[in-house]
Computed example of a mutant assay.
Amino acid sequence: MRIDVVTPWYPDHASVFLGVFVQQQVTALRSKGHDVNVEVAQIFPGPPGPIPPAVHEAMHRHAAQDVDAVYPTVDGATWIPCPVPARSGFAGRADAFAAGIAAKRRFLPTDGEITHAHLGVPTAAAVLDLGDQPVVVTEHQSTLDFVLDEPPARDRYREAIEQAAGFYVVAGHLRDRLIAAFGPEVTDRIDVIPNIVDLTDIAFRERDHERLDRWIYVGAIAAHKGTKLLIEAFLHHRANHNPHATLTIVGDGAEGRWLWNRATEAGAGDAIRLLGPLPHHEIGPHLSEADLMVHLSPAETFGIASLEGLGAGLPVISLRNGGAEHTWGSIESIAGVLLDVGSGAPAVSDSVAELADAPQRLDLASARRHVEVTYSASAVADRLLAAYTKAMS
């Protein structure tokens, strides 16, 4: 099968995490012998108002002279510059993506039998009218509510649901959100195909769960990921339960300096390791060294990091943030603790202590099997291929 994947996110040398879930799907489909071409629509911010025609004309001239300079291709993925006017919203972004992708295809055409667009708006809205092949959509953006709050984008989103040959979300709570937004008439048009959770480089290790000394968090250090709550819970735990606790953070972000300063002021600077972002294959050893994953994002579309933690044999403390309860809520009793969104640092800290006091309830070997069976690359690729076949029939 020839598949065109269109996405605003894909890993590159500047960001090894960005869109890794899209890359994992592409790799899984290619491993089954399918031809997958990837187009990555990149936002190039412009001033308010329409993009001057001279900008597009200049890009056309440069592409005619050196197509690789304008549309670089690496490992079957082509990056497409899309000038986007400031303050044009998500609908304006969709229009910019459509113009950019159409311009690229004049130089580097695609021949896919089907298009797989990641995100309803802007991406699916951009490609629905660019070709005759059926379009399958996967929705997994954490900014979905902002998209739906914008009337022009909301209208484009409804059109994407209605016109797509298949519309999928990565977890059930996103389906519920879209049904609430657009009414029961879209219920039968939306189904769930999860992200891949790749445990290839993540070894399972049995642990003594009576000692949950070594915490780990993997993800962005940012407000929307709950990292302020993470550090406050960690400091509370050291002060009230376990003065030997340590915290390893894999990732970076805007709150990194604040987090370090807060820990240092509390006398816990030596107990925290900030490793920065790491390639996926380098994360496994750090998971093996840890005793517990704590992930306190208040909202997650899916939540791959927590599932990778379970795959490594780590109990997980998380919030009922949408993704967590839909991906591993059914095995919470053997895998960790899910707290209500809004829980404070003492509640998180106390839940770690309570888990250490009752380790006999944990069965992380079964938790890993749950992740392998449900979210393996082969299983998800088979579901995608079934969706493509249905869309083309």
Rank of each mutant, 00 (worst) to 15 (best):
R238Y: 05
A239P: 08
A239F: 03
A239G: 12
N240G: 06
H241P: 02
H241Q: 06
N242W: 06
P243S: 11
H244E: 13
H244K: 10
H244Q: 14
T246A: 11
L247R: 02
T248E: 02
T248I: 00
T248Y: 01
V250Q: 00
V250T: 00
V250W: 03
V250A: 03
G251A: 04
D252N: 14
D252W: 11
G253N: 12
A254F: 00
A254W: 00
E255W: 14
E255C: 05
G256F: 11
G256C: 13
W258Q: 05
W258Y: 12
L259A: 15
W260T: 13
W260A: 15
N261D: 15
N261H: 14
R262E: 14
R262G: 01
A263I: 01
T264N: 14
T264C: 11
E265N: 10
A266E: 12
A266D: 07
G267V: 04
G267S: 10
A268Q: 07
A268D: 06
G269V: 10
D270L: 13
I272H: 00
I272W: 02
I272K: 06
I272A: 01
I272F: 02
I272D: 01
I272T: 01
I272E: 03
L274Q: 15
L275A: 11
G276D: 11
G276V: 14
G276M: 11
G276L: 13
P277R: 15
P279C: 02
H280Y: 11
H280Q: 15
H280P: 07
H281D: 15
E282S: 08
I283A: 00
I283F: 01
G284E: 09
G284D: 12
G284R: 15
P285T: 04
H286F: 03
L287W: 05
S288L: 10
S288C: 07
E289G: 06
E289M: 00
A290C: 07
A290P: 07
D291H: 08
L292M: 10
M293A: 14
V294C: 08
V294F: 08
H295L: 09
H295F: 13
L296P: 02
S297E: 03
S297V: 02
P298K: 06
A299I: 01
A299F: 08
A299K: 12
A299Y: 10
A299D: 03
T301Y: 03
F302G: 09
G303C: 01
G303P: 01
I304D: 02
S306I: 00
E308A: 01
G309C: 07
G311Q: 06
A312S: 14
A312L: 01
A312F: 09
A312N: 10
G313T: 08
L314Y: 06
L314K: 06
L314N: 05
P315I: 04
V316P: 04
S318L: 07
R320C: 13
R320W: 01
N321L: 05
N321K: 07
N321V: 05
N321H: 08
N321W: 10
G322E: 13
G322M: 12
G323I: 07
A324P: 12
A324N: 15
E325F: 06
E325Y: 05
H326P: 00
W328Y: 14
G329C: 06
G329D: 03
